[in-house]
Write a protein that binds this DNA or RNA. Sequence first.
DNA 1: ACCTGAACACCGTTCAAGT
DNA 2: ACCTGAACACCGTTCAAGT
Lengths: 199, 199
Amino acid sequence: MPSSSSVWLTPPATASPGLSRAALVRAAVTRLDADGLDRFSMRRVAADLGVTVGALYWYVATKDELLELALDDVLGEAEHAPGARDWRAALVGHASALRAVLLRHPWALPLLSRLPNIGPNAMRLADAALAIAAGFSDPPAVVAALHDQVVGAVVAQAGAERGLAAPSRTATDPAERADRRFAFALDCLLDGLAARLPD
Amino acid sequence: MPSSSSVWLTPPATASPGLSRAALVRAAVTRLDADGLDRFSMRRVAADLGVTVGALYWYVATKDELLELALDDVLGEAEHAPGARDWRAALVGHASALRAVLLRHPWALPLLSRLPNIGPNAMRLADAALAIAAGFSDPPAVVAALHDQVVGAVVAQAGAERGLAAPSRTATDPAERADRRFAFALDCLLDGLAARLPD
DNA sequence: ACCTGAACACCGTTCAAGT
DNA sequence: ACCTGAACACCGTTCAAGT
Protein backbone atom coordinates (compact mmCIF):
# COMPACT_ATOMS: atom_id res chain seq x y z
CA MET A 1 0.00 0.00 0.00
CA PRO A 2 1.41 3.43 -0.97
CA SER A 3 1.18 6.24 1.57
CA SER A 4 -1.99 7.95 0.33
CA SER A 5 -4.00 10.15 2.64
CA SER A 6 -7.43 8.64 2.11
CA VAL A 7 -8.99 5.37 1.00
CA TRP A 8 -11.12 7.29 -1.47
CA LEU A 9 -8.07 8.49 -3.35
CA THR A 10 -6.77 4.98 -4.06
CA PRO A 11 -8.80 2.34 -5.84
CA PRO A 12 -9.17 -0.98 -4.04
CA ALA A 13 -6.30 -3.38 -4.63
CA THR A 14 -8.58 -5.96 -6.24
CA ALA A 15 -11.57 -5.35 -8.51
CA SER A 16 -14.25 -4.21 -6.13
CA PRO A 17 -17.16 -6.63 -6.04
CA GLY A 18 -15.03 -9.67 -6.74
CA LEU A 19 -13.76 -11.21 -9.91
CA SER A 20 -15.25 -11.41 -13.37
CA ARG A 21 -14.37 -13.21 -16.54
CA ALA A 22 -13.57 -9.97 -18.32
CA ALA A 23 -11.29 -8.82 -15.49
CA LEU A 24 -9.51 -12.18 -15.56
CA VAL A 25 -8.90 -11.93 -19.29
CA ARG A 26 -7.67 -8.37 -18.94
CA ALA A 27 -5.24 -9.39 -16.20
CA ALA A 28 -4.03 -12.31 -18.31
CA VAL A 29 -3.30 -10.05 -21.29
CA THR A 30 -1.39 -7.66 -19.04
CA ARG A 31 0.74 -10.47 -17.63
CA LEU A 32 1.32 -11.97 -21.07
CA ASP A 33 2.44 -8.63 -22.44
CA ALA A 34 4.80 -8.15 -19.51
CA ASP A 35 6.28 -11.65 -19.13
CA GLY A 36 5.60 -13.54 -22.34
CA LEU A 37 3.94 -16.90 -22.87
CA ASP A 38 6.63 -19.03 -21.26
CA ARG A 39 6.47 -17.30 -17.88
CA PHE A 40 2.71 -16.99 -17.83
CA SER A 41 1.04 -19.04 -15.11
CA MET A 42 -2.36 -19.27 -13.48
CA ARG A 43 -0.79 -18.66 -10.09
CA ARG A 44 0.82 -15.43 -11.24
CA VAL A 45 -2.32 -13.91 -12.68
CA ALA A 46 -4.19 -15.05 -9.56
CA ALA A 47 -1.67 -13.20 -7.42
CA ASP A 48 -2.11 -10.10 -9.59
CA LEU A 49 -5.82 -10.22 -8.86
CA GLY A 50 -5.29 -10.79 -5.15
CA VAL A 51 -6.95 -14.16 -5.26
CA THR A 52 -6.17 -17.88 -4.93
CA VAL A 53 -5.45 -20.02 -8.00
CA GLY A 54 -8.53 -22.12 -7.48
CA ALA A 55 -10.73 -19.05 -7.81
CA LEU A 56 -9.78 -18.68 -11.48
CA TYR A 57 -11.34 -22.04 -12.29
CA TRP A 58 -14.74 -20.63 -11.46
CA TYR A 59 -14.51 -18.38 -14.53
CA VAL A 60 -12.45 -20.55 -16.82
CA ALA A 61 -12.23 -24.31 -17.24
CA THR A 62 -8.58 -24.49 -18.13
CA LYS A 63 -5.44 -22.48 -18.78
CA ASP A 64 -5.79 -23.02 -22.51
CA GLU A 65 -9.31 -21.61 -22.38
CA LEU A 66 -7.99 -18.47 -20.72
CA LEU A 67 -5.29 -18.20 -23.39
CA GLU A 68 -7.93 -18.59 -26.06
CA LEU A 69 -9.91 -15.73 -24.54
CA ALA A 70 -6.77 -13.59 -24.30
CA LEU A 71 -5.95 -14.29 -27.93
CA ASP A 72 -9.37 -13.22 -29.14
CA ASP A 73 -9.25 -10.21 -26.83
CA VAL A 74 -6.17 -8.70 -28.46
CA LEU A 75 -7.53 -9.54 -31.89
CA GLY A 76 -10.23 -7.00 -31.04
CA GLU A 77 -7.58 -4.29 -31.12
CA ALA A 78 -7.34 -4.51 -34.91
CA GLU A 79 -9.68 -1.77 -36.04
CA HIS A 80 -11.65 -2.50 -39.15
CA ALA A 81 -10.49 -0.71 -42.25
CA PRO A 82 -12.77 2.28 -43.01
CA GLY A 83 -13.70 0.57 -46.25
CA ALA A 84 -14.16 3.67 -48.36
CA ARG A 85 -11.04 3.14 -50.47
CA ASP A 86 -10.43 0.63 -53.25
CA TRP A 87 -10.04 -3.06 -52.44
CA ARG A 88 -6.28 -3.00 -52.65
CA ALA A 89 -5.78 -0.18 -50.14
CA ALA A 90 -8.41 -1.75 -47.89
CA LEU A 91 -6.60 -5.10 -47.92
CA VAL A 92 -3.29 -3.42 -47.13
CA GLY A 93 -4.93 -1.62 -44.22
CA HIS A 94 -6.43 -4.85 -42.96
CA ALA A 95 -3.15 -6.74 -43.19
CA SER A 96 -1.21 -3.94 -41.52
CA ALA A 97 -3.68 -3.74 -38.64
CA LEU A 98 -3.41 -7.47 -38.01
CA ARG A 99 0.36 -7.33 -38.23
CA ALA A 100 0.51 -4.49 -35.73
CA VAL A 101 -1.55 -6.47 -33.22
CA LEU A 102 0.65 -9.56 -33.53
CA LEU A 103 3.81 -7.49 -33.19
CA ARG A 104 2.37 -5.79 -30.11
CA HIS A 105 1.49 -9.13 -28.48
CA PRO A 106 4.17 -11.64 -29.52
CA TRP A 107 2.75 -14.30 -27.18
CA ALA A 108 -0.31 -14.55 -29.44
CA LEU A 109 1.79 -15.95 -32.26
CA PRO A 110 2.50 -19.48 -30.99
CA LEU A 111 -1.12 -19.70 -29.86
CA LEU A 112 -2.36 -19.35 -33.42
CA SER A 113 -1.08 -22.82 -34.31
CA ARG A 114 -2.13 -24.45 -31.03
CA LEU A 115 -5.54 -23.01 -30.22
CA PRO A 116 -8.81 -22.82 -32.18
CA ASN A 117 -8.98 -19.03 -32.70
CA ILE A 118 -12.65 -18.95 -33.59
CA GLY A 119 -13.67 -16.25 -31.11
CA PRO A 120 -16.01 -13.35 -31.93
CA ASN A 121 -13.25 -10.87 -32.70
CA ALA A 122 -11.47 -13.33 -34.98
CA MET A 123 -14.79 -13.87 -36.75
CA ARG A 124 -15.48 -10.16 -37.17
CA LEU A 125 -11.99 -9.64 -38.58
CA ALA A 126 -12.46 -12.48 -41.04
CA ASP A 127 -15.86 -11.19 -42.12
CA ALA A 128 -14.51 -7.70 -42.68
CA ALA A 129 -11.73 -9.08 -44.85
CA LEU A 130 -14.14 -11.27 -46.79
CA ALA A 131 -16.29 -8.23 -47.56
CA ILE A 132 -13.29 -6.41 -48.99
CA ALA A 133 -12.38 -9.43 -51.12
CA ALA A 134 -15.96 -9.93 -52.31
CA GLY A 135 -15.01 -9.02 -55.87
CA PHE A 136 -12.80 -12.09 -56.28
CA SER A 137 -14.03 -15.45 -57.43
CA ASP A 138 -12.81 -17.17 -54.23
CA PRO A 139 -12.78 -14.57 -51.42
CA PRO A 140 -11.78 -17.02 -48.64
CA ALA A 141 -8.71 -18.04 -50.61
CA VAL A 142 -7.74 -14.39 -51.07
CA VAL A 143 -8.18 -13.63 -47.38
CA ALA A 144 -6.23 -16.76 -46.45
CA ALA A 145 -3.33 -15.80 -48.71
CA LEU A 146 -3.19 -12.34 -47.16
CA HIS A 147 -3.54 -13.65 -43.63
CA ASP A 148 -0.80 -16.24 -44.17
CA GLN A 149 1.60 -13.61 -45.44
CA VAL A 150 1.01 -11.53 -42.29
CA VAL A 151 1.41 -14.43 -39.88
CA GLY A 152 4.49 -15.76 -41.62
CA ALA A 153 6.14 -12.35 -41.65
CA VAL A 154 5.53 -11.81 -37.94
CA VAL A 155 6.78 -15.29 -37.07
CA ALA A 156 9.98 -14.60 -38.98
CA GLN A 157 10.41 -11.21 -37.33
CA ALA A 158 9.81 -12.63 -33.84
CA GLY A 159 12.19 -15.51 -34.48
CA ALA A 160 14.87 -13.24 -35.90
CA GLU A 161 14.83 -11.11 -32.76
CA ARG A 162 15.98 -14.12 -30.70
CA GLY A 163 18.74 -15.12 -33.10
CA LEU A 164 20.88 -12.14 -32.14
CA ALA A 165 20.18 -10.74 -35.59
CA ALA A 166 22.09 -13.62 -37.26
CA PRO A 167 24.70 -12.52 -39.82
CA SER A 168 23.29 -9.08 -40.47
CA ARG A 169 25.97 -7.24 -42.30
CA THR A 170 23.55 -4.46 -43.14
CA ALA A 171 23.51 -1.54 -40.76
CA THR A 172 19.75 -1.03 -41.04
CA ASP A 173 17.32 -1.38 -38.17
CA PRO A 174 15.86 -4.93 -38.09
CA ALA A 175 12.33 -3.61 -37.51
CA GLU A 176 12.67 -1.28 -40.47
CA ARG A 177 13.95 -4.08 -42.67
CA ALA A 178 11.03 -6.25 -41.57
CA ASP A 179 8.66 -3.45 -42.53
CA ARG A 180 10.21 -3.14 -45.98
CA ARG A 181 10.15 -6.87 -46.59
CA PHE A 182 6.55 -7.11 -45.50
CA ALA A 183 5.55 -4.30 -47.84
CA PHE A 184 7.46 -5.98 -50.67
CA ALA A 185 5.85 -9.39 -50.17
CA LEU A 186 2.42 -7.84 -49.81
CA ASP A 187 2.89 -5.87 -53.02
CA CYS A 188 3.91 -8.96 -54.95
CA LEU A 189 0.98 -10.93 -53.62
CA LEU A 190 -1.51 -8.14 -54.39
CA ASP A 191 -0.16 -7.81 -57.91
CA GLY A 192 -0.78 -11.49 -58.43
CA LEU A 193 -4.25 -11.18 -56.98
CA ALA A 194 -5.10 -8.14 -59.09
CA ALA A 195 -4.30 -10.13 -62.22
CA ARG A 196 -6.97 -12.63 -61.15
CA LEU A 197 -9.80 -10.12 -60.66
CA PRO A 198 -12.86 -10.98 -62.78
CA ASP A 199 -14.35 -8.42 -65.25
CA MET B 1 10.54 -56.89 -20.84
CA PRO B 2 8.69 -58.99 -23.43
CA SER B 3 9.02 -62.76 -23.25
CA SER B 4 11.75 -63.26 -25.86
CA SER B 5 13.73 -66.46 -25.88
CA SER B 6 17.24 -65.00 -25.96
CA VAL B 7 19.02 -61.76 -25.17
CA TRP B 8 20.59 -61.81 -28.61
CA LEU B 9 17.21 -61.58 -30.30
CA THR B 10 16.23 -58.33 -28.59
CA PRO B 11 18.26 -55.14 -28.82
CA PRO B 12 19.34 -53.61 -25.51
CA ALA B 13 16.71 -51.39 -23.89
CA THR B 14 18.97 -48.35 -23.97
CA ALA B 15 21.48 -47.29 -26.63
CA SER B 16 24.40 -49.58 -26.01
CA PRO B 17 27.50 -47.68 -24.92
CA GLY B 18 25.57 -44.92 -23.16
CA LEU B 19 23.93 -41.77 -24.35
CA SER B 20 24.93 -39.29 -27.02
CA ARG B 21 23.69 -35.92 -28.11
CA ALA B 22 22.47 -37.30 -31.42
CA ALA B 23 20.55 -40.10 -29.70
CA LEU B 24 18.98 -37.60 -27.34
CA VAL B 25 17.83 -35.41 -30.19
CA ARG B 26 16.46 -38.42 -32.05
CA ALA B 27 14.51 -39.54 -28.98
CA ALA B 28 13.17 -36.01 -28.51
CA VAL B 29 11.91 -35.84 -32.10
CA THR B 30 10.20 -39.21 -31.70
CA ARG B 31 8.46 -38.11 -28.50
CA LEU B 32 7.47 -34.77 -30.03
CA ASP B 33 5.99 -36.48 -33.06
CA ALA B 34 4.04 -38.86 -30.83
CA ASP B 35 2.82 -36.53 -28.06
CA GLY B 36 3.13 -32.98 -29.33
CA LEU B 37 4.89 -30.00 -27.80
CA ASP B 38 2.59 -29.56 -24.80
CA ARG B 39 3.14 -33.04 -23.41
CA PHE B 40 6.85 -33.12 -24.13
CA SER B 41 9.01 -33.22 -21.02
CA MET B 42 12.61 -33.92 -20.15
CA ARG B 43 11.53 -36.67 -17.76
CA ARG B 44 9.59 -38.47 -20.48
CA VAL B 45 12.40 -38.52 -22.99
CA ALA B 46 14.77 -39.57 -20.20
CA ALA B 47 12.48 -42.50 -19.42
CA ASP B 48 12.42 -43.43 -23.11
CA LEU B 49 16.20 -43.61 -23.03
CA GLY B 50 16.25 -45.60 -19.80
CA VAL B 51 18.07 -42.87 -17.96
CA THR B 52 17.56 -40.30 -15.19
CA VAL B 53 16.51 -36.73 -16.01
CA GLY B 54 19.73 -35.30 -14.71
CA ALA B 55 21.69 -37.31 -17.27
CA LEU B 56 20.20 -35.27 -20.10
CA TYR B 57 21.81 -32.12 -18.77
CA TRP B 58 25.18 -33.53 -19.57
CA TYR B 59 24.41 -33.29 -23.29
CA VAL B 60 22.16 -30.27 -23.30
CA ALA B 61 22.09 -27.13 -21.16
CA THR B 62 18.36 -26.61 -21.16
CA LYS B 63 15.05 -27.89 -22.48
CA ASP B 64 14.89 -25.05 -24.99
CA GLU B 65 18.30 -26.02 -26.31
CA LEU B 66 17.07 -29.55 -26.91
CA LEU B 67 14.01 -28.18 -28.69
CA GLU B 68 16.25 -26.01 -30.83
CA LEU B 69 18.27 -29.07 -31.81
CA ALA B 70 15.09 -31.02 -32.56
CA LEU B 71 13.79 -28.17 -34.71
CA ASP B 72 16.94 -28.02 -36.80
CA ASP B 73 17.00 -31.80 -37.01
CA VAL B 74 13.63 -32.07 -38.75
CA LEU B 75 14.53 -29.13 -40.99
CA GLY B 76 17.17 -31.46 -42.36
CA GLU B 77 14.40 -33.62 -43.81
CA ALA B 78 13.65 -30.99 -46.44
CA GLU B 79 15.68 -32.21 -49.39
CA HIS B 80 17.22 -29.56 -51.55
CA ALA B 81 15.53 -28.93 -54.87
CA PRO B 82 17.49 -30.62 -57.71
CA GLY B 83 18.05 -27.17 -59.19
CA ALA B 84 17.98 -28.12 -62.84
CA ARG B 85 14.65 -26.50 -63.58
CA ASP B 86 13.75 -22.83 -63.95
CA TRP B 87 13.71 -20.57 -60.92
CA ARG B 88 9.94 -20.70 -60.56
CA ALA B 89 9.68 -24.48 -60.43
CA ALA B 90 12.67 -24.60 -58.11
CA LEU B 91 11.06 -22.13 -55.71
CA VAL B 92 7.81 -24.09 -55.72
CA GLY B 93 9.75 -27.26 -54.95
CA HIS B 94 11.60 -25.56 -52.15
CA ALA B 95 8.42 -24.15 -50.60
CA SER B 96 6.60 -27.46 -50.89
CA ALA B 97 9.43 -29.36 -49.23
CA LEU B 98 9.47 -26.94 -46.30
CA ARG B 99 5.70 -27.11 -46.00
CA ALA B 100 5.78 -30.91 -45.96
CA VAL B 101 8.27 -30.92 -43.10
CA LEU B 102 6.22 -28.49 -41.03
CA LEU B 103 3.03 -30.45 -41.63
CA ARG B 104 4.80 -33.66 -40.65
CA HIS B 105 6.08 -32.13 -37.39
CA PRO B 106 3.43 -29.70 -36.15
CA TRP B 107 5.31 -29.11 -32.90
CA ALA B 108 8.01 -27.28 -34.86
CA LEU B 109 5.62 -24.50 -35.76
CA PRO B 110 5.28 -22.70 -32.41
CA LEU B 111 9.03 -23.07 -31.94
CA LEU B 112 9.73 -20.95 -35.01
CA SER B 113 8.49 -17.83 -33.24
CA ARG B 114 10.09 -18.65 -29.89
CA LEU B 115 13.50 -20.09 -30.73
CA PRO B 116 16.45 -18.78 -32.77
CA ASN B 117 16.35 -21.32 -35.65
CA ILE B 118 19.84 -20.60 -36.90
CA GLY B 119 21.05 -24.20 -36.94
CA PRO B 120 23.12 -25.73 -39.76
CA ASN B 121 20.15 -27.31 -41.54
CA ALA B 122 18.20 -24.05 -41.41
CA MET B 123 21.22 -22.31 -42.86
CA ARG B 124 21.64 -24.81 -45.68
CA LEU B 125 17.96 -24.48 -46.56
CA ALA B 126 18.22 -20.70 -46.63
CA ASP B 127 21.36 -20.79 -48.75
CA ALA B 128 19.76 -23.16 -51.24
CA ALA B 129 16.77 -20.84 -51.57
CA LEU B 130 18.99 -17.79 -51.95
CA ALA B 131 20.85 -19.48 -54.79
CA ILE B 132 17.58 -20.09 -56.61
CA ALA B 133 16.55 -16.46 -56.13
CA ALA B 134 19.93 -15.12 -57.20
CA GLY B 135 18.43 -13.52 -60.31
CA PHE B 136 16.37 -11.05 -58.30
CA SER B 137 17.59 -7.69 -57.16
CA ASP B 138 16.95 -8.54 -53.48
CA PRO B 139 17.19 -12.33 -53.07
CA PRO B 140 16.74 -12.35 -49.26
CA ALA B 141 13.46 -10.47 -49.62
CA VAL B 142 12.24 -12.98 -52.21
CA VAL B 143 13.16 -15.93 -50.00
CA ALA B 144 11.53 -14.27 -46.99
CA ALA B 145 8.29 -13.69 -48.89
CA LEU B 146 8.19 -17.32 -49.96
CA HIS B 147 9.12 -18.60 -46.51
CA ASP B 148 6.47 -16.44 -44.85
CA GLN B 149 3.79 -17.74 -47.16
CA VAL B 150 4.69 -21.32 -46.24
CA VAL B 151 4.80 -20.72 -42.49
CA GLY B 152 1.58 -18.73 -42.49
CA ALA B 153 -0.23 -21.39 -44.47
CA VAL B 154 0.87 -24.19 -42.15
CA VAL B 155 -0.06 -22.17 -39.06
CA ALA B 156 -3.53 -21.62 -40.48
CA GLN B 157 -3.89 -25.28 -41.38
CA ALA B 158 -2.74 -26.44 -37.94
CA GLY B 159 -5.03 -23.97 -36.20
CA ALA B 160 -8.01 -24.92 -38.35
CA GLU B 161 -7.64 -28.55 -37.38
CA ARG B 162 -8.32 -27.64 -33.73
CA GLY B 163 -11.36 -25.48 -34.52
CA LEU B 164 -13.52 -28.49 -35.35
CA ALA B 165 -13.38 -27.33 -38.97
CA ALA B 166 -15.30 -24.15 -38.08
CA PRO B 167 -18.34 -23.46 -40.29
CA SER B 168 -17.22 -25.55 -43.24
CA ARG B 169 -20.25 -25.94 -45.39
CA THR B 170 -18.14 -27.31 -48.19
CA ALA B 171 -17.86 -31.08 -48.35
CA THR B 172 -14.22 -31.06 -49.40
CA ASP B 173 -11.41 -32.53 -47.37
CA PRO B 174 -9.73 -29.84 -45.23
CA ALA B 175 -6.25 -31.04 -46.17
CA GLU B 176 -7.14 -30.90 -49.84
CA ARG B 177 -8.57 -27.41 -49.48
CA ALA B 178 -5.39 -26.34 -47.68
CA ASP B 179 -3.33 -27.73 -50.56
CA ARG B 180 -5.38 -25.79 -53.11
CA ARG B 181 -5.20 -22.57 -51.14
CA PHE B 182 -1.47 -22.90 -50.70
CA ALA B 183 -0.99 -23.46 -54.41
CA PHE B 184 -3.18 -20.44 -55.16
CA ALA B 185 -1.33 -18.10 -52.79
CA LEU B 186 2.02 -19.33 -54.03
CA ASP B 187 0.99 -18.77 -57.64
CA CYS B 188 -0.13 -15.21 -56.94
CA LEU B 189 3.09 -14.43 -55.10
CA LEU B 190 5.26 -15.92 -57.82
CA ASP B 191 3.41 -13.94 -60.49
CA GLY B 192 4.13 -10.79 -58.57
CA LEU B 193 7.77 -11.78 -58.19
CA ALA B 194 8.13 -12.67 -61.87
CA ALA B 195 7.02 -9.15 -62.80
CA ARG B 196 9.94 -7.82 -60.74
CA LEU B 197 12.67 -9.88 -62.42
CA PRO B 198 15.45 -7.66 -63.86
CA ASP B 199 16.41 -7.87 -67.57
C1' DA C 1 -22.56 -18.05 -5.91
C1' DC C 2 -18.00 -17.47 -5.11
C1' DC C 3 -13.63 -18.20 -2.85
C1' DT C 4 -9.99 -20.55 0.34
C1' DG C 5 -6.71 -24.16 1.63
C1' DA C 6 -4.74 -27.97 0.86
C1' DA C 7 -3.67 -31.62 -1.71
C1' DC C 8 -2.20 -34.47 -6.12
C1' DA C 9 0.63 -35.43 -9.82
C1' DC C 10 3.49 -33.44 -12.26
C1' DC C 11 7.32 -30.01 -14.07
C1' DG C 12 12.75 -27.89 -15.24
C1' DT C 13 17.03 -27.49 -13.15
C1' DT C 14 20.88 -28.22 -9.87
C1' DC C 15 24.32 -30.80 -7.66
C1' DA C 16 26.55 -33.67 -4.40
C1' DA C 17 27.90 -38.24 -4.66
C1' DG C 18 29.07 -42.32 -6.87
C1' DT C 19 31.59 -45.18 -10.73
C1' DA D 1 33.62 -38.67 -18.22
C1' DC D 2 29.19 -39.89 -17.32
C1' DC D 3 25.22 -41.00 -14.52
C1' DT D 4 22.22 -41.48 -10.07
C1' DG D 5 19.38 -39.73 -6.29
C1' DA D 6 17.51 -36.43 -4.13
C1' DA D 7 16.27 -32.06 -3.53
C1' DC D 8 14.36 -27.13 -4.78
C1' DA D 9 11.07 -24.16 -6.53
C1' DC D 10 7.77 -24.26 -9.20
C1' DC D 11 3.54 -25.93 -12.22
C1' DG D 12 -2.12 -27.05 -13.68
C1' DT D 13 -6.05 -28.91 -11.74
C1' DT D 14 -9.34 -30.71 -8.25
C1' DC D 15 -12.26 -30.36 -4.45
C1' DA D 16 -13.86 -30.40 0.18
C1' DA D 17 -15.00 -26.82 3.14
C1' DG D 18 -16.24 -22.38 4.31
C1' DT D 19 -19.12 -17.82 3.62
